[in-house]
Design a protein around this nucleic acid. Structure first.
Lengths: 308, 308
DNA sequence: ACTTCAGTGTAAATCGATTAACGAACCGAG
DNA sequence: CTCGGTTCGTTAATCGATTTACACTGAAGT
């Protein structure tokens, strides 16, 4: 009634001398009111500049938000640059569209904590998708507390009550290792990004990767080891870099070859790294695969183009 | 009380013989209740498995959702592949983190309509950011209907009551055109992606680009024209491609040069296109910039790397 | 004994909508 | 004239929390 009041179902109903129920029906259940009434309601709504039923109120009453929360890797910047992650995001976005769901992106920074976990607590959504978090990330705990339907993608594998999807990284890496072994490779190196939350950059020993907080990375290394290591040849050298990017792959390849000039193959544990490693190999005058074999991991388009 | 009821402030209050107000305070205003009471409440909450105050209810009462809606270009797939868009997304995500806001991504498909605009209608958010939509996109209308604070980025420029940020595309393109002219270029071509919603692929005449539904593209072409065209030299040939990708840039360059072998310079209206065009030029055995000048637009990292 | 005040907790209105269940009017059929 | 069946609308409970007053209890001040 009062002119400066924000319009709502009630203001419309009052103005028209109707019940809010009728107005609600006019919006949501056209078949349950007469065409005439509906027209009157819509007209009055337009007159008052009513934006339609308030989503928050509706969500409270209906108990569903028509939105999904995606808890995404800490470094959004790197995430967006990683075609594997982008591919996943794209697919998810597409499915959501199909299902009429919105997508709420929650980035899981490593930061202090409180503020950020709040994002998980306050998200108005019906369920969570958790993408590739590190072991023990507090966001996952916060997610589980919400008791909403949840799917964990890739990592961490121990996600409590939540559903999990992902590759069997260890088995596939082992297959790759065995294949390389069959090809005759005996001295193989590994390049990987961000085993753990700290910003280590350089060689990583077994103690480090066995306890890294990225289960994906850990499993891929372990798998390669399963496939490659034998009594007659020692631990596989691992080169770690903080970034997952072509540049990082290149830097790491140089570092690795400087330290182990005798390697005949290098496994990059993501395609993005492999792209950089290829470039670095070329720069060193190495022919691939004659002088050096390089492998990737993921199956992204860029990699195909680069001929990995 | 009843054992199978979902926990809420009230179930906790009842169990403890308190008022819901006290329980609410225990959660949000620790200083307004005694430490003892607070502890009891928290304990009971844990016992019942209470996930904390319901975000939807809180949002209804408080009137704010702590979330921003981003209405994003139709083709999410391309959007994610365009470093310019990704850069924007990343920056926005970062700012939201800083402000304690969540980010709700709403993709604006071209599709049928109804279903999709609903996403805009149902989004539980405090404000909109609209990124680079085509003129007349129904999503923008839906956004404006919500009467929330809104910022339109890049396009469309005529955004009604909403705020707008973006480049002065026309002026910067003109500057580029004039610069090329000074360098002595007289025969210049243009490569651009998606002037309009239809899937046109090939040469685009003035009639087409003057009425294209992408104001960004239109302005850049018009600006180049301002800077390049003179009485003694006719309209600048424009080659359009449906995609904004390196491959598209390459295809377009071939098409353009096949049709106009005498061009001395080609302006790609996005860096992504330019990257592809560079590759295509190399493939044709053209040296850049000796035989052919190629320009980009955006300032993305990949472009710098490619030496544009 | 009479304010006054600090410390704690409560009552109750409210945010804006949805939805079962019900009632009134009307209509042709028996 | 009455009965069963539609059609159109309303009543009222409810979703789960927030927040402004206000009430109560002791203790301290005068």
């Amino acid at each position: 009634m009062s002119p400066n009041q924000r319009p709502s179902l009630r203001t419309i109903a009052q103005q028209l001398g109707l019940s809010t129920a009728s107005v609600s029906h006019a919006f949501n259940r056209p078949d349950r009111v007469s065409a005439h009434l509906r027209a009157r309601v819509l007209a009055e709504a337009a007159r008052q500049g009513y934006p339609g039923p308030d989503p928050a109120a509706r969500q409270l009453r209906r108990g569903r938000a028509d939105a999904l929360g995606l808890v995404f890797t800490s470094e959004l910047s790197f995430a967006f640059r990683d075609p594997a992650a982008v591919g996943f995001l794209e697919g998810l976005a597409r499915s959501c569209e199909g299902a009429g769901l919105n997508l709420l992106v929650i980035s899981a920074q490593d930061a202090p904590g409180a503020r950020d976990v709040d994002a998980v607590r306050n998200a108005v959504i019906d369920g969570f998708v958790v993408y590739s978090l590190r072991d023990g990330d507090p966001h996952l705990a916060a997610v589980l507390e919400r008791k909403l339907p949840t799917v964990v993608v890739d990592a961490p594998e121990q996600a409590g009550t939540a559903d999990w999807v992902g590759l069997d990284d260890r088995a596939s890496a082992r297959a790759l290792g065995e294949y390389l072994r069959q090809l005759g490779h005996r001295r193989v190196g590994i390049i990987i990004a961000r085993l753990s939350a700290d910003r280590h950059c350089g060689p990583a020993g077994p103690d480090r990767w066995a306890h890294g907080s990225s289960s994906v990375g850990r499993n891929r290394i372990l798998g390669l080891h399963d496939g490659l290591a034998t009594p007659d040849h020692p631990a596989v050298p691992v080169e770690e870099h903080i970034e997952n990017s072509p540049r990082a792959g290149a830097d790491a390849l140089h570092a690795l070859l400087d330290r182990h000039p005798d390697l005949t193959a290098v496994c990059c544990l993501s395609d993005v790294l492999a792209v950089g490693a290829l470039a670095a190999a070329a720069q060193r005058g190495l022919r691939v695969p004659e002088d050096l074999t390089i492998t990737g991991f993921d199956g992204i388009a860029e990699a195909e183009r680069a001929g990995i």
